[in-house]
Simulated scan of single mutants.
Amino acid sequence: MDYNHEHKAGRIGWIRAVVLGANDGIVSTASLIVGIAASQVAPEHLFIVGLAALVAGAMSMAAGEFVSVSSQTDIEHAEISLEQKHIDRNWVAEEKELANIYVERGLEGDLAMQVAKQLMAKDAIGSHVRDELGITEQSQGNPFQAALFSALSFTAGALLPLLTVLVVNGPLLIPSIVIVSLLSLVLLGSVSAKIGGASILKGSLRVLIWGSLAMAVSIAVGNIFQVSG
């Protein structure tokens, strides 16, 4: 019997960064281009607008992810340092605290204390970081990795509507960008759900609905605030 016991938790960090970046790249760039196009701006300006959106968006995503993950890492390090001080100052109390955690999870008192003593004897800070603070290797992020993944995935997503501008002209431009972008979002949602072990239908519908809404609002705004070509 082939029993596959592979978990997906280790993929959460990079899946989140890639999906968020690509989704934002597609939606924001496509929405901006169709909104500008709907306002009757000269067609030759659309590519420059889209390119500017790509560059600015990629840098913004990279900076945002770097700052966010760095802040999380700083907080985790501060918590770990504080916990180490607690252990150094009162070992017995920290053993009891760890044992109480295991009691709440279902162990009997004596067994919980034995487990706490043995775990702390081997790796005191590691035991408290994992079981008290809830910090694990899977939950910790790499700021540089997150920034790189976000920037690259945003760029990949933004290229789809941007290249459509180069291929399609005239009245078919807006419908083409919408169709290409929505199909890309469905594919992105399906692939990310598959990799993460989640529902493909739910993942696809989620990005499809929000992408459609963003582009619809952008087109409406562009039609309201039209300019002369």
Rank of each mutant, 00 (worst) to 15 (best):
I174W: 03
I125E: 10
D123S: 14
Q138Y: 05
N169C: 04
L160Y: 03
V167W: 12
L133R: 06
G126Q: 06
G134D: 02
V178M: 02
D123W: 06
S181H: 00
T155A: 15
A156G: 13
G126K: 07
S153P: 00
L163I: 15
V167Q: 14
A147D: 05
V129F: 03
I174V: 15
A156N: 11
D123Y: 05
N142C: 11
H128D: 04
P161F: 01
N142L: 11
T164V: 12
V115K: 11
V129L: 03
P171M: 01
M120C: 05
V167F: 14
F154C: 08
L163C: 15
I125Q: 09
Q140F: 06
G170M: 12
P175L: 01
Q114C: 09
L148N: 10
S127W: 10
L166D: 10
L159D: 09
S181I: 00
T155S: 15
V180H: 01
Q140G: 04
Q145P: 07
Q114V: 07
R130P: 03
S153G: 00
E137T: 09
N169K: 13
E132Y: 03
E132V: 11
S127L: 09
A151T: 00
S153K: 03
G126A: 04
K122H: 15
A147C: 14
A146F: 08
V167Y: 14
A156Q: 12
